[in-house]
Design a protein around this nucleic acid. Structure first.
Length: 431
RNA sequence: GGAGAGAUGGCUGAGCGGCUGAAAGCGGCGGUCUCGAAAACCGUUUGUCCGGCAACCCCGGGCACGGGGGUUCAAAUCCCCCUCUCUCCGCCA
């Protein structure tokens, strides 16, 4: 959520931000409801103050009056007056409620303001490539796609997954299942060793939790929802960022570096027809996620180092990739600045997103009420900045490994760093 | 799932219709003392919103004692609903 004061006082800034994001906002409606809301509050509070004074007066009279009968008469008069005030208060409270509802609805629908350095652009074509690592392999045979390699090795079973659940679900068997676990453990261990505290968390969250990270209310249709009103998490970011919801963190504890492995659940509403084959876009996938809490002074540096930590995984796996910076038109709802890591996939003859690292500045912290207390401050506390990044998406990593490490005979070489996690298996062959 | 107990400030814990945004203790912060520290003593210490102001200082006011509703001139205190925690029983990986 944006700062209401910013929206009110720096309207042009918000205008520009929304335009750059290709998103529209009901500027006049929002400003009107905002000032109406404040006018109602002022009126209401004046009446409440009057009521408090009158009630206190009654208390004083009843305690201190020497002439009880005379006091009783004045008390009755005051009671009548307060009853009258209460009628007005009740009406204003209704007005306030509806104004605040309308206001919150509009505010919660506004995306974050892009950072100053974010390239302005319309869509993904305007994203900026920052750097590349590794060289895509030159195959001396016809490279297969992972959706062919997996089934032919007997480690991915797409058909039976459909029988068990529906399309866009995955069933892994034998070394496929083993490889999935190996990748997860390798990623989680690597991040832990680099200072990220590992968590194991619920994969079902309540509405407050999903609102905190920005999935609700706007993206409810993208979530799986239980019959009793809970949601399957679309990413571990949701849990890791809400760990400190409604908390005040001591500034000396910042920055906090967290990571977690969870399955992720996405409805993928509206993406029918895109990436329909293979492991790329599915309803349930594994991911190791990184989340940081930082002060505003350091959050952009923390973003840079988080990208390096995600890149580290790809480098250790020997997978060629590039880093791109998203333009304003391609930024996610909560993000002020985002780098995507794209891994080389022979089947796409191109790079495909495998990680997305974002600085959400105070956007989520304001929704989730996450603050920090600085000893230097006179009083009060400030909103933290939250960051999140995939480190990495496991299914897409498996796809990249199968494709980039495939051999002419159809077998797949296990990347060296994963061999210990595979129980010493160095080559995946048809069983 | 059944039965009972409870939810108060950073923590422990009083209050059970008005003088209580909240006693006391602990913790934190500032000070006195000391070469310094400890101890002791003194002071200070909730959040949020609205208005004033250049101001996150300050001043005035509203709201908040798990959440929501009700009774009343007035609710932390009385009533109802919900949530959560604890104890016992049942079930169970």
């Amino acid at each position: 959520m944006l700062d209401a004061k910013l929206v009110r006082e720096k309207t042009e800034e918000v205008d520009a931000a929304m335009a750059n994001r290709n998103s529209s906002w009901d500027r006049d409606g929002l400003l009107a409801i905002e000032s109406k809301r404040r006018a109602i509050i002022t009126q209401l509070e004046t009446l409440q103050a009057e009521r408090n004074t009158a009630s206190k007066e009654i208390g004083t009279l009843m305690r201190e009056a020497s002439d009880k009968d005379a006091a009783a008469a004045s008390v009755d008069a005051i009671k009548a007056k307060v009853r009258d005030i209460n009628v007005q208060i009740e009406g204003l409270e209704q007005d306030k409620l509806s104004a605040e509802q309308a206001f919150n609805e509009l505010m919660l629908a506004l995306p974050n303001i892009p950072s100053d350095g974010t390239p302005v652009g319309k869509d993904e074509d305007d994203n900026v490539e920052i750097r590349r690592w590794g060289t895509p392999r030159d195959f001396d045979f016809e490279a297969q796609a992972h959706w062919d390699i997996g089934p032919s090795l007997g480690i991915i079973d797409f058909e039976r997954a459909v029988k068990l659940a529906k399309s866009r679900f995955i069933l892994l068997g034998g070394l496929g299942a083993r490889l999935e676990r190996a990748i997860i453990n390798f990623m989680a261990d690597t991040h832990s060793d680099r200072g990220y505290k590992e968590w194991w968390c619920p994969v079902i969250g309540n509405a407050d939790t999903l609102r905190g990270t920005g999935q609700l209310p706007k993206f409810e249709d993208d979530q799986f929802k239980t019959t009793d009103g809970y949601y399957l998490i679309p990413t571990a970011e949701t849990m890791l960022t809400n760990i400190h919801r409604d908390e005040v963190i001591d500034v000396t504890d910042l920055p906090l570096h967290y990571c977690a492995y969870t399955p992720c659940f996405r409805r993928e509403a509206g993406s029918a027809g895109r990436d329909t084959r293979g492991l790329i876009r599915v309803h349930q996938f594994d991911k190791v996620e990184m989340v940081k809490y930082a002060t505003p002074e350091t959050s952009y540096d923390e973003l840079e180092s988080m990208v390096v930590d995600a890149e580290n995984i790809l480098q250790l796996l020997g997978l060629p990739y590039r880093v791109i910076e998203l333009c304003t038109g391609d930024l996610g709802f909560s993000a002020a600045k985002t780098y995507d890591l794209e891994v080389w996939l022979p089947s796409y003859n191109g790079y495909k997103e495998i990680s997305s690292c974002s600085n959400c500045t105070d956007f989520q912290a304001r929704r989730a009420n996450i603050k920090y207390k600085d000893a230097e401050q006179f009083k009060g506390s400030k909103l933290v900045h939250t960051l999140n990044g995939s480190g990495l998406a496991v299914g897409r990593t498996m796809a990249a490994i199968l494709e980039n490490y495939q051999q002419a005979d159809g077998s797949v070489v296990v990347p060296e760093v994963l061999v210990p996690y595979m129980g010493g298996v160095k080559l995946i062959t048809k069983d």
